[in-house]
Design a protein around this nucleic acid. Structure first.
Lengths: 131, 131
DNA sequence: GGGGAAGTTTACGTTAACGTAAAGTGGCCT
DNA sequence: AGGCCACTTTACGTTAACGTAAACTTCCCC
């Protein structure tokens, strides 16, 4: 089975577990650009990918504006050297940010390990004092 | 030189590049608990660590409430089995979340790689068409 | 043809995380 | 004494990211 090439708003809402209000809001912010059949919104696979990107961004604490940037990194825009240069810079910024987040995650994971260890130790001591 | 054992609010603000308003706000939220000398706040190394944790959390999109949870994972509270059980669960939740974020970061990094590749390709074509 | 179900627009409401301004206190310097 | 910091409290303002409610249309079903 090949990919669907269009989606309804409710369909996307269910798939990604967001409300239709949220999806319309993203459109308002210029992050999604569904076409219309009558007055009903029809979403393309590209819209679906964009939505996925937004939600992934959210999990990493990105603002909608930042996710908008990311989405635009994908749109093959008829670009001149200026814009391509700026693009490469933006990519580099994001990469730096992601690197920092990686470090943050690693530290937090170690912290969690330590916290778990202490909790287990405390449990153990409870056991022993209570034979 | 051994660690300082107390800090002023401005000092912390400078070190972590936040405003004093922000630091006081965190106290309001119960995330910091400085003692007082007169009416002036004096921060302990533990407060400083907590602040660091909060800001790290922010970089990963954690809410202040979530960072509050993390901070509490560190406070050796006189715990009973119930609480320790809940603690271990919380730790596990956070671990799962961090794992998801790791995956998200990896995907984004690949996306950035692809975007950079396309940008470089576009640049190259511009060069060639413009001998 | 009446009534859901799913879509739409419009608009006001809400929460988190601070910003910003005003007015006061305490110390230190010259 | 005057002045300048750095600190304090109080309080109202602001922005992002939706939630919630009301009042339509459209389509489908029986």
């Amino acid at each position: 089975m090949t990919l669907k090439q269009s989606y309804g708003i409710g369909e996307l809402a269910r798939e990604f577990d967001v409300t239709t209000r949220t999806i319309r809001f993203y459109e308002d912010q210029g992050l999604l650009t569904p076409r219309r059949r009558g007055q009903t919104r029809i979403y393309s696979p590209a819209d679906r990918v964009a939505l996925k990107l937004i939600l992934r961004g959210k999990r990493l604490g990105f603002s909608l504006a930042e996710s908008g940037d990311l989405i635009r990194l994908y749109q093959p825009t008829g670009d001149n050297r200026q814009q391509l240069g700026a693009l490469l810079e933006k990519i580099d910024e994001k990469r730096t940010q992601l690197q920092q987040q990686l470090v943050d995650i690693q530290i937090m994971q170690q912290d969690l390990d330590a916290a778990e260890e202490r909790a287990r130790q405390a449990l153990k001591e409870l056991e022993e004092s209570d034979v």
